[in-house]
């Protein structure tokens, strides 16, 4: 019944109609992958930004130019303990500082500085460069710290110390997340536009191929809406077929990538891939595509017929 539908217009002869499901399948596949990519990137960004919010880092310069670095660090720690709203203040161990700078200094830092000055403490050099002392600060939950005032007091206690507020970073990451969504939206909109153009083209071709039948339907007393409905149903059916295949392939691709990510231990094997709301986006894709195709076909037929006669 669904496979061979009886229509007044013999659509099964249309070459454009045969291609439409394939084109829609490709378009929907690309949209699905773009959306999945945006969801994944966005998830990663929000994980980082939630890890960053509520943290400060104080950097105290060390080395021969700052012989009192150790005292300064102790003074800053004492200051922080007295400051209300500070949950935890912790001096990063040397090994961790080395790990943080390794991407910029390479293994040199570990090799030279680590062995030569292992026992001496914080002002040791890394590959000839002085390693700063880093203090990791977590604000108490819900506390609102005036970070500028804090930075000023820190700088008085330890001249040359720099207070970095990660809230700024978190703000930038939120901006990044927004632009990821914007790019995904633009990609999906462009794919939608390409699909609309394809449906317009296929519908116009159909109107040309079937102009004799359409002429007869008009003579028998068919309104343009009746003829448009035939084309609408055809567009709906063809694009729905393509869209279902496209979504299935996109979801398959997502599962494949997630599986690879699990094997690479980038995320736990049992982690949820998407939230139900995100899955709903995928479930809606074929319906949305079919609706867009239907409306496009309707408008194309009505406008073309009005111009034709």
């Amino acid at each position: 019944m669904l496979i061979r539908r009886q229509t007044d217009i013999p659509f099964e002869q249309d070459p454009a109609g045969r291609l439409l499901p394939w084109i829609v399948a490709i378009m929907i596949y690309l949209s699905g992958v773009a959306i999945a990519g945006a969801i994944a990137l966005n998830g990663a960004v929000s994980t980082w930004s939630s890890g960053l919010s509520g943290t400060l880092t104080i950097q105290i310069p060390a080395g021969t130019a700052f012989p009192k670095a150790q005292q300064h660090a102790d003074a800053v720690l004492a200051l922080l303990r007295k400051t209300p709203g500070i949950g935890e203040a912790r001096r990063l161990p040397r090994a961790e500082v080395l790990r943080l700078v390794r991407p910029w200094l390479g293994d040199e830092g570990k090799g030279d500085g680590g062995k030569g000055n292992g026992g001496k403490g914080g002002d040791a050099d890394a590959g000839g460069l002085p390693l700063p002392i880093l203090i990791d600060v977590r604000t108490a939950a819900g506390a609102d710290i005036d970070s500028a005032a804090l930075a000023a007091r820190v700088a008085r206690a330890a001249p040359g110390a720099v207070t970095e507020n990660h809230a700024r970073w978190a703000g930038r990451l939120i901006g990044l997340a927004r632009s990821i969504w914007l790019v995904a939206l633009i990609v999906v909109a462009l794919i939608g536009l390409a699909t609309v153009i394809t449906v317009v083209f296929a519908t116009r071709t159909g109107l040309r191929i079937h102009r004799r039948v359409i002429g007869l339907l008009h003579l028998i007393g068919a309104h343009d809406r009746y003829i448009a409905r035939q084309f609408e149903r055809q567009a709906l059916w063809l694009s729905l077929q393509g869209a279902v295949v496209g979504v299935a392939l996109a979801v398959g691709t997502v599962f494949g990538v997630v599986h690879l990510a699990g094997e690479a231990e980038l995320q736990p094997a049992d982690a949820a891939i998407f939230t139900p709301a995100q899955w709903a986006i995928f479930a809606c894709l074929p319906g949305v595509a079919a609706l867009v195709a239907l409306l496009t076909a309707r408008i194309t037929v009505l406008r073309t017929l009005r111009r034709m006669t």
Binding site: D8, P10, L216, L217, H218, L219, I220, G221
Partner: peptide, 29 residues
Amino acid sequence: RRRIGVVYQDFRLLDHLTAVDNVALPLRV
């Protein structure tokens, strides 16, 4: 036009429809 029945000199039947469906066309329309 629905109030007018026309028998065309060249018939103008739809080749892909059966006799029944051809005749039913004005009713369907």
